[in-house]
Amino acid sequence: MEPLNNDMSSIPDRDALPYRDCVGIAVFNRDGNVFIGRRKGSDDPERSADFDAPWQMPQGGIDKGEDPLRAALRELYEETNITAVSLLAEAPEWIYYDLPEDMLGKALKGKYRGQRQRWFAFAFTGDDSEIDVEAPGGGKFHAEFEAWRWERLSRTPGLIVPFKREAYEKVVEAFIDIPQRFTHV
């Protein structure tokens, strides 16, 4: 009888892994609702059968030496094709989330324990026809979303994968007053 393989070295040490620096983007339309996209593809570890919440706001990595605001505008364009925006606010602090144990060493190229995100809120000043999640950047960028819609900001924590829920609650807290700015007289 062969001994059981109890090699724990294949499980990454969470504390030894850094957070990946990223941006998150909350884009508000004229009605005060926020853009959300449904993540694309079953090969996405955040869109597995374990999670019935494949929606999220745009987000992505900050390149080395890149200013977070520039990264936010770049990621927004690369994921949604949106360029017609006006900055409304920046969250007052970095917002963190950790990957669940079973995703450590797999998601985020296996190099990170989670993300440290700088969140920005923008007013969408364009027309919905500008939004193209299927071929963002005229098809220059890989589609990350398969669908999109406008949603109330307060509902987003219930639409995200569970391990990001607390982070989204902090995003809601940071931008809670923004939807009221869009109420027209």
Rank of each mutant, 00 (worst) to 15 (best):
A26K: 08
E146Q: 15
F175A: 01
K64W: 03
V133G: 08
K170I: 03
P12F: 08
S129G: 08
P45V: 10
F141W: 13
E134H: 14
M57Q: 14
V23L: 12
E173K: 14
T80K: 04
A91E: 03
L17E: 07
K40P: 09
S154A: 15
Y112G: 02
L88S: 03
G110L: 13
P12A: 05
D63L: 07
Q56C: 14
E2P: 11
Y97H: 04
A89H: 12
Y19E: 15
P136R: 13
I178H: 10
R74S: 13
I25G: 03
E146W: 06
E166S: 09
P68D: 04
G139D: 02
T80L: 08
G41Y: 06
G24W: 04
L76S: 06
R149A: 11
F28G: 08
A121V: 06
Y97F: 08
R155Y: 13
R38G: 09
E66M: 07
R30Y: 00
L87M: 10
N6F: 15
S48N: 15
G61S: 10
K164S: 12
G24Q: 13
S129I: 06
K170N: 11
A49G: 12
D50C: 06
D102V: 10
T125E: 14
V85H: 06
E166W: 05
V34C: 10
R47F: 00
D44I: 03
E46V: 11
R14L: 12
Y168G: 07
P68M: 04
E66W: 02
L69S: 01
D102I: 01
F163D: 03
R70E: 11
R14K: 15
P68A: 04
G24I: 01
V85A: 07
P162F: 09
M8S: 11
I131R: 06
L153S: 04
A72Y: 00
P92H: 15
R181E: 11
M8N: 04
D52L: 11
E169N: 07
P54W: 15
R152G: 05
K106H: 10
G60P: 05
S86V: 02
Q180V: 04
S42G: 14
Y168L: 04
A143R: 03
P58Y: 05
G105Q: 06
Y19M: 05
P45R: 14
D67W: 01
V161H: 13
I131M: 00
L17V: 02
G37Y: 10
P92W: 12
F28N: 15
G138I: 05
T156D: 00
S48H: 09
F122V: 05
L108K: 11
Y112P: 02
N6Q: 13
K64Q: 09
L88P: 05
S42L: 13
F122I: 01
D52C: 15
M1H: 06
P157M: 05
E66H: 02
Q59W: 08
Q117F: 02
D102P: 08
S9V: 06
A91R: 01
P58V: 00
T156V: 07
G32L: 01
E90R: 15
N29D: 13
P58M: 08
V133A: 09
N5V: 09
E66G: 05
H142C: 07
E144G: 14
A135G: 07
I160F: 01
F51V: 14
E46Q: 09
D63Y: 14
E130V: 05
A135D: 09
L4N: 05
M103Y: 06
K111P: 03
P179W: 11
D128P: 08
D128Q: 13
W119S: 00
K164Y: 05
Q115N: 12
F51D: 15
E79I: 00
